[in-house]
Design a protein around this nucleic acid. Sequence first.
DNA 1: GCTCCGTATTTTGGATCCAATATTGATTAT
DNA 2: ATAATCAATATTGGATCCAAAATACGGAGC
Lengths: 231, 231
Amino acid sequence: MTSVEGHRRPPTAQQFVLEELRRAITTGRLRPGDPIRQEALAEEFDVSRVPLREALKTLEGEGLVTYKAHRGYCVQRLSLDDLREVYLIRELLEAEAVRRAVERLTDDGLAAAERAQAEVERAAAAGDVLEMAEANRRFHMTIFEWSGLPRLVRLIRTLWDSTDAYRSLYYGEEPNRQRVIEEHRATLDLLRRRDTEAVVRVLAAHRAHAVTAIEERLAPGTTGGFGAADF
Amino acid sequence: MTSVEGHRRPPTAQQFVLEELRRAITTGRLRPGDPIRQEALAEEFDVSRVPLREALKTLEGEGLVTYKAHRGYCVQRLSLDDLREVYLIRELLEAEAVRRAVERLTDDGLAAAERAQAEVERAAAAGDVLEMAEANRRFHMTIFEWSGLPRLVRLIRTLWDSTDAYRSLYYGEEPNRQRVIEEHRATLDLLRRRDTEAVVRVLAAHRAHAVTAIEERLAPGTTGGFGAADF
DNA sequence: GCTCCGTATTTTGGATCCAATATTGATTAT
DNA sequence: ATAATCAATATTGGATCCAAAATACGGAGC
């Protein structure tokens, strides 16, 4: 049956496998540093190695896995330095995206952001961490989209992808969830007033909090990479 | 024989095909908007479709080609807006990369940049546009590398890739070549003095000149995409 | 003439098989 | 015991073949 389920299966095996791989990495089933055994994974997903390899090429482009000729793929091990670098780049790109977005934002756009925020709060109340992470993403992307710069948004989205595992870590703790909600509300407030620079500042702080929290969470013990399943 | 030629053949077919595809796109042999016929291309490069498709996945990630399920790949058509967007993003990222680079730059690093510039000037004198483009790239990347931010550099490199065709256009004209050389010399001068903000300004102007020149070159007639072979 | 429909052809998607390379483990010499 | 070498094994890279989907074509109906 081709019913309208939450997640219907994609039209090609490579896209299906791509989604599964992403999930496996962000949930920590595939841990950073792990080599990727194509045969085993292909069998698990019930596809051949061809679409699997194409999906891996995509993930390589996004920086989620590394590749060495004749040695295959590994789940990318993100050091703290890597994490900081990704957040630095996000800072640069998102600041610009937000500036443009505020200039062009209509009431419709604002309403869309507010709807996304409502979903964030609903998920938080329900204690559904995974759904909250997704809604949070929709909230931010909705705003970025209003920049009218599709390539910029695409880049930002890729950067989010590459640190999904860390973000789940962040949302795993209640005070962080609460803080996210408050900061989103502040953002919406400033968006309504079209106070561009204030929005940029709030969102910069928003990111900084996440980095700090993750650093603290990670610093003790873990020297290099980490497993997202650690929590 | 595995002699030390200029370009030795990569260890895998996918990497070989990737290089060939890039060349084909940047030189305009494959024109923007063209659908990519896998069978024909694979035969031309004398490989099967499997490595070809993996190379195409990589290019998709870089934004050089687009992909639709069951309809295959197309060479990305870059509108003027797209071009401006890429240069805007480069502005954001490269400014940061340069700031960090100047702070960390040693005399060795400076010497490397000077060597690259010497190659640029040699190629320009020899009228070798292709080699000049490559040397120019080395010049800038050498500087960016000194930022110590590998992911940032990787992103910048991808952005350069996605507009290679346009850049060849720029280097096709003598006054532009001359201007590039002068601006590089100015950059080196300011680098020696570690005048960070001045370097950032010069390089911003450097990029702006390129955009302006390309816009003028493209504006008359061409409404949307263009073929890099037009010159 | 135009549209709609069904078939033929082309093109992409994927599975299997074989080749090439890397890794592992055992054997031997020092 | 250790290091080096070579064979056995595991794993990736690539070619061919078949299936599925999209496109092109031709004819029937209006």
